[in-house]
Simulated assay, not measured.
Amino acid sequence: MQESPSASLPSAAAPVHQADRKKAWQRGRSTYRPGRFTGWIVPLLFVAFMETGARLGYIPARLFPPPSELLQTISQLALRGELLMHVAASVTRVLTGFIAGSLLAVATGLLVGLSRRAEALLEPTFQALRAIPSLAWIPLLLLWLGIDETPKIVLIAIGAFFPVYLNLVAGIRDIDYSFIEVGIISGLDTRGLIRHILLPASLPYLFAGLRNGVSLAWMFLVAAELIAATKGVGYLLSDGRETGRPDLVLAAIIVLAILGKLSDGILRRCEQASLRWRDARLQKQA
């Protein structure tokens, strides 16, 4: 029986259909514009659910106070001036540790990305250090650096270092080598390659690492403020636990969530401003 000519059409047309689906997906993402308050839907529904459950007695207030009580606790802290003091201390520690850890990660990531010898020398050690929990660093940092601000900032820097380093190295490895060859042919030295090719090409990876790094910096902050801290949002958490006040613990968690979201939003705005060329290219392709 002779095979019909149309039998070969699906295989030939498959790449075309895949390309059409890809363009449709990109077009859908580029044309969708979420509402201004879309991101508030889930938090507001959760708050309404918890408030209703607490008022009706389904949720024990001694374990999870209603959101209205948490808002009252935060308001009292703000009126007494305690909230601003704790937030200022935590923001200063996170900002200092995050900047220090990120700068060191960028320098080390560029070194490892450019040199296979440096990669073979440093990569195994970094992978081992990355697996150490944050609390395991505290006794060692106390022995080395004392109980002032230095061990707190160092611990936060450790938390921010690894996401930035790993993402930057991955971004450098993903660069098409032809771009580097063009730079070498054009007479660029190592500094010129870093400035004009490596960093611009790996910016999406770098910003992904920075956003992950700032999230981990806030997580490591809680562990850092267990090191003989007398102020800070992490100290509020510890104080609420010791005094048996779940409202204070949850209020501190809410403040940490807000601060983390704000810092991530700032980095996201910086990312959008720095990568406008990529978004314009994707819209053009769509």
Rank of each mutant, 00 (worst) to 15 (best):
residue 33 R to I: 07
residue 33 R to C: 10
residue 33 R to N: 09
residue 34 P to E: 08
residue 34 P to R: 14
residue 34 P to A: 05
residue 35 G to S: 13
residue 35 G to M: 13
residue 35 G to A: 06
residue 35 G to I: 13
residue 36 R to I: 12
residue 36 R to L: 15
residue 36 R to Y: 07
residue 37 F to I: 15
residue 37 F to K: 09
residue 37 F to L: 15
residue 37 F to H: 12
residue 38 T to H: 07
residue 38 T to M: 14
residue 38 T to G: 08
residue 38 T to L: 15
residue 39 G to D: 09
residue 40 W to N: 09
residue 40 W to A: 15
residue 40 W to K: 06
residue 40 W to V: 15
residue 40 W to L: 15
residue 41 I to H: 12
residue 41 I to N: 11
residue 41 I to R: 11
residue 42 V to C: 07
residue 42 V to Y: 15
residue 42 V to Q: 04
residue 42 V to S: 09
residue 43 P to K: 06
residue 44 L to D: 10
residue 44 L to Q: 07
residue 44 L to F: 14
residue 44 L to V: 12
residue 45 L to Y: 04
residue 45 L to F: 05
residue 46 F to H: 13
residue 46 F to R: 15
residue 46 F to C: 10
residue 46 F to D: 08
residue 47 V to Q: 02
residue 47 V to L: 14
residue 48 A to I: 00
residue 48 A to K: 00
residue 49 F to A: 02
residue 49 F to Q: 01
residue 50 M to D: 00
residue 50 M to R: 00
residue 51 E to A: 01
residue 52 T to S: 02
residue 52 T to A: 01
residue 52 T to N: 03
residue 53 G to L: 04
residue 54 A to F: 00
residue 54 A to R: 02
residue 55 R to T: 01
residue 55 R to L: 04
residue 56 L to Y: 04
residue 56 L to S: 09
residue 56 L to R: 05
residue 56 L to N: 08
residue 57 G to V: 11
residue 58 Y to C: 04
residue 59 I to G: 01
residue 59 I to D: 03
residue 59 I to H: 05
residue 60 P to S: 11
residue 61 A to G: 07
residue 61 A to D: 07
residue 62 R to L: 11
residue 62 R to Q: 12
residue 62 R to I: 08
residue 64 F to V: 00
residue 64 F to W: 00
residue 64 F to K: 04
residue 64 F to P: 02
residue 66 P to C: 01
residue 66 P to Q: 02
residue 67 P to E: 02
residue 67 P to Y: 05
residue 68 S to P: 14
residue 68 S to H: 11
residue 69 E to C: 09
residue 69 E to K: 03
residue 69 E to M: 08
residue 69 E to D: 11
residue 70 L to H: 05
residue 70 L to S: 05
residue 70 L to K: 14
residue 70 L to F: 04
residue 71 L to D: 03
residue 71 L to F: 04
residue 71 L to I: 07
residue 72 Q to K: 06
residue 72 Q to V: 05
residue 73 T to E: 14
residue 73 T to N: 07
residue 73 T to S: 04
residue 73 T to W: 03
residue 74 I to R: 01
residue 74 I to S: 11
residue 74 I to F: 02
residue 74 I to V: 05
residue 75 S to G: 12
residue 75 S to R: 11
residue 75 S to Q: 09
residue 76 Q to F: 14
residue 76 Q to L: 08
residue 76 Q to A: 05
residue 77 L to N: 08
residue 77 L to C: 10
residue 78 A to E: 04
residue 78 A to K: 15
residue 78 A to V: 06
residue 78 A to S: 10
residue 78 A to G: 09
residue 79 L to A: 11
residue 79 L to S: 11
residue 79 L to K: 14
residue 80 R to F: 05
residue 81 G to M: 03
residue 81 G to L: 12
residue 81 G to Q: 06
residue 82 E to D: 08
residue 82 E to A: 12
residue 82 E to S: 15
residue 83 L to I: 13
residue 83 L to T: 06
residue 83 L to Q: 01
residue 83 L to A: 01
residue 83 L to S: 04
residue 84 L to M: 11
residue 85 M to I: 15
residue 86 H to E: 10
residue 86 H to N: 09
residue 87 V to Q: 06
residue 88 A to K: 07
residue 89 A to K: 01
residue 89 A to H: 06
residue 90 S to L: 08
residue 91 V to D: 09
